[in-house]
Design a protein around this nucleic acid. Sequence first.
DNA 1: CTGTTAGCGCCTTCAA
DNA 2: TTGAAGGCGCTAACAG
Lengths: 341, 341
Amino acid sequence: MSQQSVTMADVAKAAGVSRTTVSFVLNGRTESSIPETTRERINQAARELGYRPNAAARTLASKRSSWFGLVTEIATSPFATDVIKGAQQAAWKDGNFLLVAPSDDEPGMDQRAVEKLLEQQVGGLIIATTWHRQITVPDNAKLVPCVLVNCFDADGEFPSIVPDEIGGGYAAAEILARAGHTNIGHITVAMGIPAQIGRQTGMKQALRDHGIEPDDTKIVPGDGTADSGYHGTQALLSQTDPPTAIFCGNDRIAMGAYDAIKERGLRVGEDISIVGFDDQEILAPHMRPKLTTIALPFEELGMAGVSLLNQMVEGSPIENRQITIGCPPRIRSSVAMHGQR
Amino acid sequence: MSQQSVTMADVAKAAGVSRTTVSFVLNGRTESSIPETTRERINQAARELGYRPNAAARTLASKRSSWFGLVTEIATSPFATDVIKGAQQAAWKDGNFLLVAPSDDEPGMDQRAVEKLLEQQVGGLIIATTWHRQITVPDNAKLVPCVLVNCFDADGEFPSIVPDEIGGGYAAAEILARAGHTNIGHITVAMGIPAQIGRQTGMKQALRDHGIEPDDTKIVPGDGTADSGYHGTQALLSQTDPPTAIFCGNDRIAMGAYDAIKERGLRVGEDISIVGFDDQEILAPHMRPKLTTIALPFEELGMAGVSLLNQMVEGSPIENRQITIGCPPRIRSSVAMHGQR
DNA sequence: CTGTTAGCGCCTTCAA
DNA sequence: TTGAAGGCGCTAACAG
């Protein structure tokens, strides 16, 4: 490090006071009130000398660092980067940093990542995943406060923050039902994952609440790819009584659905209504017609993660160990009113 | 921090040696050779006690930290996250961390970000942007080694690493020319930015090299959105001698182009060939037909950034201050052979 | 209200 | 080959 090194002692000397005094005013301690003039003198000296606090020294002396560790595979995938963004913003606001360590499928890597993070004296840990699922948390993560984001552990030992898949599925189906559709298809994401289960459950609930009996023959299993959306849509539209609306398990499925619909000479948002899920910013607003979809609140997940962590670090009791965050609808142009009531 | 605190002194005591000795073996110093038995004894003691080095103490004492700072707006945008990924991997491999600080449009914010990073004793700085462009670097960034990634400063004071836009444009046009197309349209990204200028320049060069005289009436200015691709394509296809192939300035433009083409009852990859740019992983491989495009080497940019930084920190002379990294083609299914030679 | 005094955990030079 | 001692820059009791 080639930084010039101006220390507190230097500032103290220049201002003609002791290091303690400098430490107090520079850290804005109010408990012992120091004359405004002294204060000013010190601040000025610091400025003139170009004093810059040394975070390592501070961490060492105070035994508390200004950063949290984030271990995640997200850094490796473009899908959920907003959780990093949210976490970062929240941390940054308090002058804290996020140390992000890449998570890896290779077994044991997570443990190593956590280990490195602990060496850096992180005050807390966030473990985040790209897609909502169950994980097993490395043991050493228990050494500091730790919260799970977009994932959860089997026995709920760690507080976790996840999207409200059920609510999202409900919202999606409701949009369609409210538009007058009664014959609604669904193409799922990969079977068995929380997103699939939750969204489908929510959808069925919404249908029932709107007086529509869910029909399992209208639900075709997909795998989250555009291809599965394409083929799923073809299957649905080939039924004898084809749906007038389809709730696609995610935006990419919707992308495939668009293609299948257009290929049949039908029009999305007129003949067939589509609702997606995820609200991928690169995709949804750019489709033709622009896709009505349900947003995954990644940024909020990240923010909630650090704020929960903050609470834990400060020792506040946390009331809610399983926080679920709503998935808000993004109404655009792929849904049409259908028939009359 | 609630970590149990086992220090080197503890290990030393347990192993019956001095702290110095412990420090030497734990850091793998070879210069003074310590008996294998002692070594083993120390390692075992460390393991048993659960010793974990304290990075803050190490940084303080050695005056060199194990991290680089990355200031970027990328953390805020899903478009170029791979540069973080690449940088992180490269850093992580050496046991180093990346401290990433959000960059902000608000003037002065970058300076503040750099300031915070310097306080953390970063050994070097990377400044990265989402899209290739010129920036002005905050003054304080000069205090440590600093490299620019996906951007550059006006007077080339900082080493910078950027994608080879010209080469990419050349490759795109060449794919089309080699497929036998001679009437090739182009829809640009936002006018005046390096991507637009470089790609267009490369394209024209490729055409000339293939005996095709560039025709400016075939070049329609866009703005990088799917909408501009849609309208640009309509314009192109309405010409009296419409192009048989279109080089779209980016993948989203290509997305719009697909829609316009399909709407006219033509088939992408048969009647009209399309080449994109960027290779957005969420988009390009999911389009129908899958989009042939030119990849932006984000990950490599990031990796090159930290490896250059490593060199600088170690004081190695750097020969190349302006590194440009190739944009490799991704051949998929949107280009068809055209006519005979 | 301000200054003195100890460390924090580790690295590193110097002796032994 | 190993041990002793000093110091990195800062915080935090505790005096004055």
